[in-house]
Computed example of a mutant assay.
Amino acid sequence: MTTHDYITLDERWSARNYHPLPVVLAHGEGAWLTDLDGRRYLDFLAGYSALNFGHRHPDIVAAAKAQLDQLTLTGRVFHHDQFGLFCRELAELTGTEMVLPANTGAEAVESALKVARKWAYQVKGVPDGAAEIVVADENFHGRTTTIVSFSTDAEARDEFGPFTPGFKVVPYGDADALRSAVTDNTAAVLLEPIQGEAGVVVPPKGYLAEVRQLCDDTNTLFVADEVQSGLARTGTTLALEHEGVRADLYALGKALGGGIMPVSAVVGRADVLGVLRPGEHGSTFGGNPLACAVGRAVVRLLAGGEFQERSRELGAYVHARLGELDGVAEVRGRGLWANVRIAEGRPTGRKVSEALAERGVLCKESHGNLRVAPPLVITREEIDFGVDAIADVLG
């Protein structure tokens, strides 16, 4: 079959909720992908942080293969020999006390919302059915019905209602607006430490510390969505560490599966996650043996700090190089995660992504800008290859 055949097959039999670039990928290793015709591409997106360790990292693949020969699924009605070790090691890595495994990032966020509401009724004393969650505009936490209920993106919301009540939306980075929105019925504040889909938006310095203080003052939970920003993407294990701030609950995902399979979790305070009782929440595949083995391999890779350091050092390099390009109006972000705002009069949107693919670089436009987030295994020479391609397209 040809590239055209595969694309035609996809378009005939799959729902069109994505608009992929016209390449058919067949192999990946490290920071590189190869299509059906043997052409190589530098991966400058890394699956929106799901591929922090590159394609088929040997340690993660080895862990998956070893577990495939042993046990893959039990359901949580039984114990298995990978579960407790995964939970302990992930808690130790993140400096938290308890772990609630799940599968996808959206599932982790949904689970955190449920836990926050349960905690509000049981511990804070919020009247039944009155718990509120305060969120930020331009957020992206997933695409389930409840999550799009508090999205400000029309594309995510339009024609998907009626929506789940119980959410207040305030401007991101505005501590005064947040303070005005929090009441005695507020269960939690849910934020991305860096807003990914909005354009890798870093909040004003001190904002996250103000959020933490406000939550402390009002007995409100701070829930951090670190599905994209967590696990070394920004140069620290968790992005909140840049501001010296701790959340009560964290939603983790994407990179936790090592590019092998979906693995996510809510991690945080034991007295908060401890409100759950058997039968109140569950997931058939959450915390399965294969997922735990893969997650443990990811934790081991992060434990030494090498990938956090690579993200810091190479992130500074890629930000500097992108900022020097003619045709770039602004570069923002942190670590190996950047949003490139393209100057007026230059190619934008999908045209940029298609032109980059023709030059052997796979990247993605976002709201007319360019999202740059390569695997953390990338080298300086490979960064130069990608940035030079961007310069060529914008020139």
Rank of each mutant, 00 (worst) to 15 (best):
E381H: 06
G295T: 04
A50L: 11
S111Q: 15
T348N: 01
L9M: 10
V23I: 10
E324K: 15
P162A: 10
L221Y: 09
G287S: 03
S49Q: 08
I383S: 12
R310G: 04
G84Q: 13
G386T: 00
G105S: 04
H79A: 15
L301S: 01
A293T: 01
E159P: 03
G315Y: 07
G166P: 04
L301I: 04
L68T: 10
F222P: 03
T2S: 09
L73N: 08
V169M: 01
H79P: 08
G333A: 05
I260K: 15
L273F: 06
T220A: 07
G287W: 00
G304S: 05
V23T: 01
T183L: 09
S14Q: 11
Y48D: 15
R246Q: 15
S353V: 04
G38W: 08
T348S: 09
R39L: 01
H367L: 15
V275F: 12
A355M: 05
A320S: 04
G206V: 09
V148G: 04
V361D: 06
V109S: 07
T96K: 00
L73H: 14
H27V: 14
H242G: 09
E313S: 08
L100Q: 00
F44C: 12
G54V: 12
V123A: 00
E280V: 04
T164Q: 12
E243C: 03
R359C: 00
E382A: 08
A112D: 14
E306D: 13
E313T: 11
D158L: 14
L276P: 03
D137W: 12
L73S: 11
Q122Y: 05
T104E: 03
T74W: 12
G315N: 07
E344N: 04
P171M: 10
A50Q: 06
C215H: 12
D137E: 13
Q122K: 14
D5I: 02
W13D: 05
R312D: 02
S229V: 03
L231Q: 09
N52I: 07
T152K: 06
A108M: 08
R16M: 13
V361L: 03
C292E: 02
V294G: 06
G335A: 07
G196L: 11
V61S: 06
Q195G: 14
H19F: 11
S366V: 14
A329L: 10
G257S: 09
P374A: 10
G323K: 00
E381W: 07
A181G: 00
A62F: 02
F385P: 05
A154I: 10
T104H: 10
P127C: 02
L238P: 00
R143I: 09
C215K: 02
E241A: 15
H242Q: 12
V115R: 07
V115K: 01
P165S: 08
E324D: 12
E210L: 08
Y48L: 15
D69V: 05
L178F: 05
R88H: 05
L113M: 13
R143S: 10
D384I: 08
A251L: 13
